[in-house]
Design a protein around this nucleic acid. Sequence first.
DNA 1: CTCCTTTTTTATCGATCACTAAAGAAAAAG
DNA 2: CTTTTTCTTTAGTGATCGATAAAAAAGGAG
Lengths: 197, 197
Amino acid sequence: MGRPKSFDVDDVLEKALRLFWERGYEATSISDLERVMGLRPPSIYAAFGNKETLFKTCADRYVERYSGYVVEALTKEPTAAEAVMRLLSDTVDAYVHDTQPRGCLVVSGAIHCPDMDEGPRLVLEQYRKATEAAITTRIVRGQEEGDVPKDVSAPMAAKLVATVMQGFSTQARDGAGNEDLHRVAKLAVEALGLSVA
Amino acid sequence: MGRPKSFDVDDVLEKALRLFWERGYEATSISDLERVMGLRPPSIYAAFGNKETLFKTCADRYVERYSGYVVEALTKEPTAAEAVMRLLSDTVDAYVHDTQPRGCLVVSGAIHCPDMDEGPRLVLEQYRKATEAAITTRIVRGQEEGDVPKDVSAPMAAKLVATVMQGFSTQARDGAGNEDLHRVAKLAVEALGLSVA
DNA sequence: CTCCTTTTTTATCGATCACTAAAGAAAAAG
DNA sequence: CTTTTTCTTTAGTGATCGATAAAAAAGGAG
């Protein structure tokens, strides 16, 4: 019962996500969000709490809707080398894409926040670390299955992959071309030495 | 003639630089700068213009005082492979250092600014691109001098190195250890295939 | 000393920040 | 219909943003 919402929650959330993605947490004001969401402040606060909880909701949405390729790449390929190659390749396509803001919300969305130990920055940091951990797990699996040499340090190889992904976000925002970054991704994987022989 | 300044310009500039380095351009307020510089607003504005020009002055200072290792690494080593190895190694030491803020001001100091086409963000972007260009130049030189295979794409190899450096800034801010990043740097260089045979 | 220049201090400025109280409007329930 | 519930609109809150006007203070020049 009661008066029904005049807007579609999913729709306005997508618009907020796009703005946070483009401008980052701190540089996006409630006033900016009002404009793109087409809502007055009380509607925003009633529906999403406050700016920080709205951002967290958007971050979760980003991971669900725009980062699916990470798990996809790490689970759908037969070898760790192929998984990592696909991961980096799909990352490039996600970061340099005509219909999306450049770069990654998780990497570049909240670098500097007043409090390092809580808030948006920490949420994204946890997502970054979860990604790196997932890569480590995939490489370890490769070693168990025999497609990755045992002398490779899975955590360090994974950290290099994560580092390259994070660097790609800056590169994408600086205007790097899709094709160039694909070549860089290929170079990076070759240097990893993940394939046996 | 006239009343002499009550503060040392170099000294307060260093303090402003450290704060921008730690918190980034947008998250650092004039009020914060007042506190660490020990100055009242009119003194800051009279000496440094406004917040944006103060940041640019700090960015220039950062490059001069804390990024000297880049040119050093690219000019003082006999081969491109050694130059790149030293560059990444010194980058790790610069980004994870007990007496300095973690990460890089040029990479992480101004990700999101209202105007993409001017202001702090653009200044840092230009520094990032200058670094990548310098790496390219060094690798090309290696090819001319015969220590880098001719079939390597210098621009792409340089972009990978720049990407890893940029990723290191995020890694450093996320708490990665100095030793771990050194291992990652070594991995990255090995994968580059810059050495002939 | 007095004058002149520059810097300091004090006290703000208007704009914008994130956020909200209160009243009006739109639906379902009775 | 009236009542109840929920949402939207209007209009603002105090706090902080970057930046400044005006006056007091500290030096050198004469």
